[in-house]
Design a binder for these strands. Structure first.
Lengths: 324, 324
DNA sequence: CACAATATGTCAACCGATTGACACACCGTC
DNA sequence: GACGGTGTGTCAATCGGTTGACATATTGTG
C-alpha cells in the first residue's frame, strides 16, 4: 500500500485536486458540504499532506536545526527540551545535531542542515566559529557562544555568576579557593568570563588563585585523574568553584574519597542536578527563559526583523545554596 | 542573494545541469577535467544540493523521528544522544519530539512526522499505543514500551533488575523495603516488571510489600510532597527501591531532611547520575547498547528485513553499588 | 433582470533535483 | 571504415503539492 496523496483524496471525495488543496489551505470559496466531504475523505484515507512537496514549492521548511555538544548533560538536555517545546508550539520542527564538541562533526552537521533547507539554527556547541554561518543567509541564534558579528547571543551572566559563587565561598571562610574549568581552551583564551569573575573577586579580597583546567573534551576517567592529581598537589584547598555541575559532582565524590569536604559551588543548576544532588551549591542559569528567548529571537529574525543582529542578551543567574 | 541551485553550478562550470547531476550522483561517464570543474564550481558557489527536492523525487527522506518524553532526564538524554550519533553515522537525520508524556502531544508529533515523510521512528515515550503506528507503514522501534504486535521492542531486563535491586536491599539487612514507582498508571496495571521483580523477591523472602506510586506526570513539588507523606506514614522504612534515578535522588534528599538514611537503589544508571550522585546504588541499563541495537533494528527494517517484527530484545542490567 | 458573490473545475507553471532516452562527437582498435 | 567505449548535451517526465488564470454554474440581492 503506497502513500495516500492529494489526488486520491480528491477522487475519494469526488472533487478536484484543486478543491482539496483549497480546503487544506483555506483559500478561495468552499461550501461547508464540500469541506466536510474532503475532510471526511482525509480522515478516512489517513491522508497526511506531504510536507516535502509543500516545502519544495514554498521554499520554507519550518525546520530548525539545533546544534549542541550532546543532550546527555542535563543542562543541555533541559535547554534542548525547552527549545523543542517552544519551537513545536510555533509550528516548527527540530532537527537535532550532537556535535560532541568536535569541529568536524559540527561542520558536517551544518552542511547537512543547509542541504535540508532549515529555516534557522540554534547553536549551543562550543567550537570555533565556522564561516559557513556567515555564508548561508539564514536565521541563527547562539547560546553562550560567539559565532559571528551578526549572530545574536543568549547567555547567562557568566561574570556575575562567577562573582556570586566566589563571594559565597569567601563568606564560608574558605582560605584557599580553586577554580576548576571545563571549557574549551580557546574559549578560555578569549577571556572566559567565569574565570574572570573568579579572579577579580579573589583579587579584590587579596586571595591567591588556583586554577585547574579539566579539558572537557577528554574522557571522564582522564578528567577524574586530573582532578585527583590536582587535589593531591594542593591538599589544603577548602573551596571550589566548578564551571559546570557535572564537574562539581565529580570533584565532590573525588574529595569524599580523599576524606575531604571542601565547600563546592557549581554552575548551571539544571532541575535534574538540583534533584539528584542535594549537597552542592550552584549558580543557576535560567534555562527556560534562555530557551524561550532564543526561540523568540530566532522566529523574529525569520520574520525579517533584523534588530537582534549583533545583540547580546545576558540573563541574570541566582546562587542556590545547599548544605550537606 | 537567493539560494544557489544546481542550474547555477552548471552555468558557472560551463556544463549542462545533467552533467552536474551526474557528478553529484556518480553516474554515467565523466572526465576528470569536467568533474573537477564542477566540484570547483560547487565549492566556489557554496552549493548544497537541495535535499528537499531530492527527497521528493526519491521518496526517501533519510529522516528518523525520535519520540521521547523529554531529554532532560539524563537517561533519555543519553539514549537520544547515542541514537542520534548512530543515526548520523549511517547518514540519517534526527527529528526530535518531546511528548512530555502527553498523549495528545505524541499524536500531534506523530502526525507531523508522517507529514514530513520520515523513513522511521524510534519511540521511547510511555503513552498508550496509538493506532497511527499501525496505519502508517514505516519502520518503528520501541524502547521499553509496547506499541503494537509488530513493532520490535528494545528494553533492559526490568524484572531481573528489580530482583537484583531488591535482593541487594535484603543483603543489606533492610527490614522494611518500599518500592517507589514513577511509571504511568496504565503501565503498572499491565504488569510493571520492575514491580513484579520487587514483589516476587520479597515474597520469596517472606517480606511484606510497601508500595508508593509517584505519578510521574505530576509536577516535581507534588511528587516530593507525596514521597514525604509516605515516609511520614511509614517511618520505619529502611530500604527503598526507586524505579528511576531521579526519583531515587529526590527520596534521598527528602530522607536526609527527615534525618533518615534508608538504603536506596535506583534504576537507569546514566553516566550523569553516576557522576553526580556518588552515594546511591542503582541498576544500570546499558544505554549505549540499547541505542545501538535500536538503530540497527530500525535500519534493518528499513532495508526490508522483517525478521524483527514482534520481537523483544531484552538486554542485561548490572547493579552498581555505592556507599555513602 | 442584471450583477455580484459564492462555489467548483480545468489547466499549466512551478519548486529543485533525478533519471532515462536519445543524439552527437571523439577516440582507439580490429 | 565500422564499431564500441567514452564524454557531454538536450529534452521531458517525475516526485506531490500550490497557485494563479480562467471558465462555468448556481445562488442571492437590489
Amino acid at each position: 500500500m503506497g502513500k495516500v496523496k492529494l489526488e486520491n483524496v480528491a477522487k475519494f471525495a469526488g472533487v478536484s485536486p484543486t478543491t482539496v488543496s483549497r480546503v487544506l489551505n483555506n483559500r478561495g470559496y468552499i461550501s461547508d458540504a464540500t469541506r466536510k466531504k474532503v475532510n471526511d475523505a482525509i480522515e478516512e484515507l489517513g491522508y497526511f499532506p506531504n510536507e516535502v512537496a509543500r516545502s519544495l514549492y514554498g521554499s520554507k521548511t519550518n525546520l530548525i536545526g539545533i546544534l549542541f555538544p550532546n543532550v546527555s548533560n542535563p543542562f543541555y538536555g533541559e535547554m534542548v527540551t525547552e527549545i523543542e517545546k517552544n519551537l513545536s508550539q510555533k509550528g516548527y520542527k527540530t532537527l537535532l545535531c550532537n556535535t560532541s564538541d568536535n569541529e568536524e562533526k559540527e561542520t558536517e552537521h551544518l552542511k547537512m542542515l543547509l542541504s535540508n533547507q532549515v529555516d534557522g539554527i540554534v547553536v549551543g556547541s562550543r567550537n570555533q566559529p565556522s564561516d559557513i554561518y556567515e555564508k548561508a543567509n539564514l536565521a541563527v541564534v547562539a547560546i553562550d557562544r560567539f559565532v559571528s558579528a551578526k549572530v545574536p547571543i543568549v547567555r547567562s551572566d557568566n561574570y556575575g555568576g562567577a562573582c556570586l559563587a566566589t563571594r559565597y565561598l569567601l563568606t564560608k571562610k574558605c582560605k584557599k579557593i580553586a577554580i576548576f574549568i571545563g571549557s574549551p581552551e580557546e574559549e578560555i583564551k578569549k577571556g572566559d568570563l567565569r574565570l574572570k569573575g573568579y579572579l577579580d573577586t579573589l583579587t579584590e579580597n587579596n586571595h591567591g588563585e588556583h586554577i585547574c583546567r579539566v579539558s572537557f573534551d577528554e574522557n571522564e576517567n582522564y578528567q577524574k585523574a586530573k582532578i585527583s592529581e590536582y587535589m593531591d598537589a594542593n591538599p589544603d584547598i577548602d573551596g571550589v568553584f566548578a564551571t559546570g555541575d557535572i564537574l562539581a559532582g565529580m570533584i565532590k565524590s573525588i574529595a569524599r574519597q580523599k576524606n575531604k569536604n571542601p565547600e563546592i559551588v557549581g554552575y548551571d543548576g539544571s532541575d535534574t542536578f538540583l534533584s539528584l544532588c542535594g549537597d552542592i551549591s550552584t549558580v543557576r542559569q535560567p534555562v527556560k527563559k534562555m530557551a524561550r528567548l532564543s526561540v523568540d529571537i530566532l522566529l523574529d529574525s525569520l520574520a525579517g526583523n533584523y534588530e537582534h543582529e549583533g545583540q547580546e542578551y545576558i540573563l541574570p543567574v541566582t546562587l542556590i545554596e545547599r548544605s550537606v
